[in-house]
Design a protein around this nucleic acid. Structure first.
Lengths: 121, 121
DNA sequence: TCTGTATTTCTATTATTTTAGAAGTATGGT
DNA sequence: ACCATACTTCTAAAATAATAGAAATACAGA
């Protein structure tokens, strides 16, 4: 018996993918991890350093890092005993691009002027 | 007896607020609602129209709309028997501004060039 | 006032997420 | 081989979110 594979539109897959990314940013703990990694970019931070910023049990932090990593918002690299995490700027740019396009293209719901200035400060 | 109010840093409050907003975007159903409202901007859509886009039970949709509304990503207005929802472009711009600032300011993790172009297309 | 349409709230169930202690794995130094 | 440090996975509990049928509310029109 062949189980029917649920078909999904292109925009449906796209939406689902970005929704997952937003969900990854949708916890104060994870968002503050990402903020810290962005400030520390491109050097990144090892877990101990990150833990200092977030103040949560090690095992909990590990789960949060895993979620961010699965969504490819961050990368890991072993450095002897340490694990060094970094913001994944390629994917972040993709996410920003998606949100900008949705808001500023087509019906131009959001005015781009002020946003562009933020980048140039 | 006066219960101590838990103190939180400014950046902590900011992080928490934006995390909630990202969480609101962190479901495929809600993100597709917002995309539809952005496409339909500034006209907005009534619930029945939105339901056509998302394909979910009315009561479920109502909860999703409530979450988006509480986070101020959308607004509602009654129009006789209908409720017309619209993307809240002010708050969306705030959210975009936050993400852009985090990514493109300071360590300049993300290059602004390509993003600016998206707005100008 | 009665009826129909639009939408929300109530109620309940199931699924996912968050949390963290305890135990395990990885690595480097002695 | 052993130890210490860094971090993850295991296990489990509690909290939150998602889902939707059924009942309730809001409004307009006859």
């Amino acid at each position: 018996m062949v189980t029917a594979r649920p078909v999904q539109s292109q925009s449906g897959k796209e939406t689902a993918r970005y929704a997952e990314m937003f969900a990854a940013l949708g916890s104060a703990a994870r968002l503050s991890v990402l903020r810290a990694l962005l400030r520390a970019h491109p050097g990144g931070m090892v877990v101990g350093e990150i833990q200092g910023e977030v103040g949560v049990a090690g095992s909990t932090l590990s789960h949060h890092l895993e979620k961010l990593r699965v969504e490819e918002l961050i990368t890991v690299e072993r450095e002897s005993t340490f694990l060094r995490y970094r913001a994944n700027t390629v994917v972040l740019e993709e996410l920003l691009g998606f949100l900008l396009a949705e808001c500023c293209q087509g019906s131009r719901a959001v005015e781009a002027k002020g946003l562009i200035q933020i980048c140039q400060e």
